[in-house]
Design a protein around this nucleic acid. Structure first.
Lengths: 138, 138
DNA sequence: CTGGATCCTTTTCGATACTG
DNA sequence: CAGTATCGAAAAGGATCCAG
């Protein structure tokens, strides 16, 4: 692995000063609450790597997702402008999904969190084990 | 606004090639699923900005959180090694919470997503409005 | 003050059956 | 193939009471 460099190479957030508008805060949190969804991130990941893909194929690439959740997730992503939905008016319906530029930029932004999870997974597991050791008393 | 530069200045993720271990993938996703929680991120945000803080004070800084969720969230963050919990053996119990280095690095990693949400919030709102316009038929 | 335990409501999600 | 509609199980979450 050639990722010795940490992920906070880019200093940009250390400016929490302008947190003056509570309503804007709520909006940002609402947005994050939506995109931070399990299925949304997996769909984002698959589409970012595989590119345009049709409904069923996409579902096969997301382990464990139900048809209902796939539909719901894609609808939400489409509404938020993360993906574009293309319907081909052919006999057996053919619908393809593809990331928009905004969707791609989100994938890039989430990259930092993804790397963080990979880099600290061992520490997290160790922490959980240690925590379970000194808390198992009921 | 002087944030003309996009957030994917750092190219690091475009290397999804080593996605060979499905079990590691599941673990990473499970970790992200936990930290991507609404309350976890808000607590992370408050602790990152305000530093060490005690239970009740922390709760007042997180709008709308219940005591139950605050306790649960902090327990989980503690188990994952994101915060340290310090108990002062005094008459009225005094418990303080503080981010660990790992917790701080997570805050830095999530920064990218936060910036993304702020930068694209208008586009997202516009997209939602447009979507609501062409889908309102029941 | 901190937080565990309980009850109850809301939401989420999977399975299934059915259309164009 | 690509959904929609519906039902029931399960989980999340809030309110409240109580204890150290």
């Amino acid at each position: 692995m050639s990722q010795d460099k940490t992920i906070h190479d880019f200093a940009a957030c250390p400016a929490p000063a302008q947190h003056s508008d509570p309503e804007l805060d709520r909006l940002v949190q609402e947005i994050i609450g939506r995109i931070a969804d399990k299925w949304t991130m997996l769909a984002l990941d698959v589409l970012a790597e595989q590119g345009r893909m049709r409904f069923t194929t996409l579902g096969k690439h997301i382990e464990g997702i139900s048809q209902k959740m796939l539909t719901k997730t894609l609808r939400q992503m489409e509404a938020d402008g993360l993906v574009v939905r293309t319907v081909f008016p052919v006999v057996p319906p053919r619908v393809e999904y593809e990331l928009t530029p905004i969707g791609q930029s989100l994938g890039a932004a989430f990259c930092g969190v993804w790397l963080w999870a990979e880099q600290h997974r061992e520490a997290i597991l160790a922490s959980r084990a240690a925590f379970a050791q000194r808390a198992p008393e009921t």
